[in-house]
């Protein structure tokens, strides 16, 4: 896994303006699930560093452990071996400090709460004052372009709008790490393009660390600073591709040769990763 050292070096070389700070540090992470059909090796020897402000995409065929890795970061899954630290804390300690905003593939909004009520949910749990709740709800709904829908119920909104609301919910309490598990996977391509563009702007403005699971190559290339290519059985990291595209990315960048070149590298990586799967 010498590969894994690369992004770290690259970061240090590139980020001359501000000192890079590692937020998530995984070393030789292992996770074995015991199932009825015997043990399943969901993660094997995963070593990876993610720096503050990175946008990291995880891509790979199903069963490669990309979602599992996200869940390990969020302390929703306990690794069976290796080490993982988030801000020099264990994931569970970081969870208790509310370090994570998690966005699932389904929006998972509560149908009995309005959009504003849904965004308010984590704020109520964490215990913000009433005024601050209102203020933050207003701010994040603006951020995801949902002003005016505060009093609507989720089932009165389209799928894309629901997913935007769920992103607002994850942003509301200013968690420094945003974990997104195929958030746009269930949406059609047109809506998806639009949300990708918005997500980039949002990242630009908030400078959060984002871990993003996807199985769309263009999505991964368009969004991220690093693309982690994973392969299945056992789930492991095959390659980490440093994305050379500039941070300023209009949608049209996807037609440029540079973009296609990166996409090509990802595709090659996926192919090769699948190769020694036998």
């Amino acid at each position: 896994m010498a590969l894994m050292e690369k992004p770290l070096q690259n970061e240090q070389g590139q980020g001359a303006d501000c000192p890079k700070e590692t937020v998530i540090r995984a070393r030789d992470l292992d996770l074995v699930f015991q199932t009825n059909d015997g043990p399943v090796h969901a993660l094997k020897d995963v070593t990876l560093d993610i720096d503050r402000g990175d946008f990291v995409s995880f891509i790979g065929p199903s069963g490669c452990g990309k979602t599992t890795f996200l869940r390990v970061i969020a302390a929703l899954e306990e690794p069976t071996g290796g080490e993982i630290m988030v801000n020099d804390l264990t994931p569970d300690e970081a969870r208790r400090l509310r370090a994570y905003g998690y966005v699932f593939q389904a929006a998972g909004l509560y149908p009995w709460r309005t959009i504003a009520g849904n965004v308010k949910l984590p704020l109520e749990i964490i215990g913000f004052t009433r005024e601050e709740q209102e203020e933050r709800v207003k701010k994040v709904l603006e951020l995801v372009d949902l002003e005016g829908f505060e009093r609507k119920y989720p089932w009165q909104l389209s799928g894309g709008m629901q997913q935007r609301a769920s992103i607002a919910r994850a942003l509301a309490f200013d968690a420094e790490i945003l974990l997104m598990d195929e958030p746009f996977g269930a949406l059609d391509e047109i809506v998806r393009d639009h949300l990708n563009e918005q997500l980039l702007k949002l990242w630009e403005r908030t400078n959060k660390t984002i871990c993003f699971v996807t199985h769309s190559i263009p999505e991964a290339v368009y969004l991220s600073t690093h693309i982690v290519v994973m392969s299945p059985r056992p789930g492991r990291i095959h390659e980490v591709i440093q994305n050379p595209l500039p941070r300023e990315r209009p949608l049209e960048i996807r037609d440029t040769p540079e973009f296609l070149e990166v996409a090509h590298r990802v595709r090659e990586g996926l192919k090769a990763g699948h190769g020694y799967d036998g």
Partner: peptide, 21 residues
């Protein structure tokens, strides 16, 4: 759903918070 409970976990919600909300 499992997902909604996971969400509550990421908020580090307590038992009663999860129950009521």
């Amino acid at each position: 759903s499992e997902m909604q409970r996971d969400l509550m976990r990421t908020y580090a919600a307590g038992y009663w918070q999860e129950l009521v909300k």
